[in-house]
Design a protein around this nucleic acid. Structure first.
Lengths: 265, 265
DNA sequence: TGTTTGAAACTGTCCGACAAACGGACTGTT
DNA sequence: AACAGTCCGTTTGTCGGACAGTTTCAAACA
């Protein structure tokens, strides 16, 4: 209940101003991708700040993916590859304790749409990538069937890779980006489901059916099989007797009842 | 076709090692969210490096969202809010010259699904937010109708906010994250369409219909209206005589023909 | 008990310095 | 002409020290 009420005076630290200024130059195109960043001393002179301050600003640019460093060379302006950035977002999501239901619902929306489009856009190169992925998964399934202990981490990685390839060949970069958190979350989800239910072959079969539809250029078939695949995904999770509304990281830590302690904050 | 092929020898700079070390501590839970980061000098001692080096490492943490600074206070460990991180990815996407067709296709998949879910999950608070957004947009439309010059930037921001609120109240954080690049891209797209076609009122009406369905708890209606709204979006773009396959940033720069120079790299 | 005050701790910024690595030019050898 | 060796200016990575302005925290005070 202050009398006058000045607006909060905000003084961004100098290193952040440096960051903002350089970012603006890049976004405006005055610094182009591939160009080397001006030398730190030169920047310090231009901005009228110390070199240390410039360096701290450059660290921000570095982590945001706008400049790339290779060895001790001059850092260069770079185009952050969108999937790289999104994956750190997904890491944050995992920390935020997303539930399986949320993951599954999003998958049901995105995956069939992606599979459908992929059937119309995939080329030889994409088919080759998928084919290699299938071969690797088939080998792993055969190994497991023969009694060897399952490499859950490796299998989940292959599963994720399959869906990621699909997103990248569907001819729509916005959809690929939107889809990224889903693939990332497949990993914890897969690690929960697979060791308990051993549905390795079932996953592989679904992927193969989808692949066949892609190779045949059959969008409707690809969508249908992906839909089934995702339905399987939910059913498998339900069979683990875990609640759909348990957070994935709680589940992966083995807290099977819904009484996990409240999230801080 | 190299004979032996040594693996690349990599020497990470010390500030990155500092970053890695602190990140590990956070992800392992030994540094907990909300805790203040140890003092720079103390960290410098522990790591055996100079304070400047520690500071550069902290800048990386800062930009990755793991550390939050408020004024001159001690920085605190923070949980990166997923939407914050995703937005930098979208910025990268814009640079990557996504086409309107990609944006629109993704919108057609995500927006109706989100609207449908929002109708089942929205609460009083969410309805209030949407209502305030609608009021602001209505005022702006009335202002424009009365002959005032349109504040395109402000209007587009309101438009984006509407869709963002919807995503945040749909009860699915994965979908909200997946949706984020779409809202971000609404901004350049809206700035292209609106000044040329002046479809302000049409946008407002669509939002109002959707809002009414949400308030009435009508998922099917919300989906249907959102679908129409997105269809309008495409039609409006087509009316600008821009190709659907022109990249958004080329279009916003006024390069209307498809002969924009090839993208570097 | 609640407020004020003052010292300690800490961050933001600057300065100066040096080793290591890189880029390029120049040179001598084969 | 191709190549290895050498030198040198530039630039980054790291260090030590310094100081002003804030925040924190507890003692002193009302």
């Amino acid at each position: 209940m202050q009398e006058h009420g000045f607006s909060r005076i905000e003084r961004a630290p100098a290193y952040r101003l440096v960051y903002d200024a350089i970012e603006r130059e890049i976004l405006a195109g005055r610094l182009r991708v591939g160009d080397p960043l001006p030398a730190e001393l030169q920047l310090a002179e231009q901005f009228g700040v110390n070199r240390s301050t410039v360096r701290e600003g450059i660290r921000l640019l570095e982590q945001s993916g706008l400049v790339e460093r290779d060895g001790g060379k001059r850092p260069r302006i770079s185009m952050p590859h969108y999937l790289d950035l999104a994956s750190s977002a997904s890491r944050a999501l995992i920390l935020h304790m997303v539930t399986f239901r949320e993951l599954w619902e999003a998958s049901m929306v995105l995956e069939p749409a992606i599979a459908e489009r992929a059937a119309g856009h995939i080329d030889e190169k994409g088919l080759g990538e998928l084919s290699r992925n299938l071969d690797a998964m088939e080998a792993e399934v055969a190994r497991i069937d023969s009694g060897a202990p399952a490499d859950v981490y490796g299998f989940v990685a292959l599963d994720r890779a399959f869906h990621e390839i699909l997103a990248n060949v569907c001819g729509n970069r916005v959809m690929a980006l939107a889809h990224e958190p889903v693939t990332s979350l497949f990993i914890p989800a897969g690690r929960i489901i697979l060791p308990r239910l051993k549905t390795y072959r079932r996953v592989f079969d679904a992927h193969r059916y989808i692949y066949n539809c892609l190779a045949a250029g059959d969008p409707a078939g690809a969508r249908t099989w992906m839909h089934k695949h995702m339905d399987d995904f939910r059913r498998a999770y339900e069979l683990t007797a875990l609640s759909l509304d348990t957070s994935l990281d709680a589940a992966s830590l083995g807290m099977v009842n819904g009484t996990a302690q409240a999230h801080s904050r």
